[in-house]
Amino acid sequence: MTSRDSAVRICVLYPELLGTYGDGGNARVLSRRLAWRDIAAEVHTVGAGEAVPDSCDLYLVGGGEDGPQTQAARELQASGALHRAVDRGAVVFAVCAGMQILGSRFPDADGIDRPGLGLLDCVTMRVDRPRAVGELLTTDATVTGPGGSTVPLGPLTGFENHAGRTVAGSSAIALGRVEVGEGNGDGTEGVVTGRVIGTYLHGPALARNHRLADALLGLVVGADLLTPLDDADVEALRTERQAAARRDRVGSGHDSLHRRRRP
């Protein structure tokens, strides 16, 4: 379907700061899905204090706790590499705390507003409600492919664990609409500004949502659709998790002890 002379370069940013919730799995998923299609992939892991390359094709930013989140924002701001990469057309996929720091402001561990990187048109604020912890499910979601076409993703499924409320600005669009869970807090889930995509979905997100993984790779390699893979295991997981999220919402099952607020 597509051919490339060079390997797809994937950059995992600060896994020790933003890697608490298995989000490192997103890089494994992307590199395997490339390899299975005979597209070469290189994964560059950048630790705190190390130089961030500005030449990668796809950047992954994971979720983490409040303190490390602020440190990651400070380092990325000082580096400037991620801004240069986005200007060049790189794709960024950011989860939870990672999405929050890519917006224009976010609350730190003490609830004080901190400046974000401004790569996503959104702000995150602290709100007075219990932390959202549990399954998060959207209705059918789409993203815009490299040729401007609409790429269907199906429902997005994941696990959310956050306290902030995220409000998208006028130039941003939501990634999906919440069916079960909290998401951004206003019935939407995730924020998309150009090729920068943010979400509250852990799980990891790309393990549970293979079409979203392929959509990110499609943006990188310039194809709306990539060769299909054997995704029977993922489809089985998606079916089971969607049912679990809906069961959770109506309050049966042990998960309902923990939460939950209706969308």
Binding site: Y21, G22, D23, G24, G25, G134, F159, N161, P204
Partner: peptide, 14 residues
């Protein structure tokens, strides 16, 4: 992934 296990098994990826 019951309460005593943690409801979120995303650690499988670690």
């Amino acid at each position: 992934s019951r309460i005593a296990d943690g409801l979120d098994p995303s650690w499988l990826w670690d």
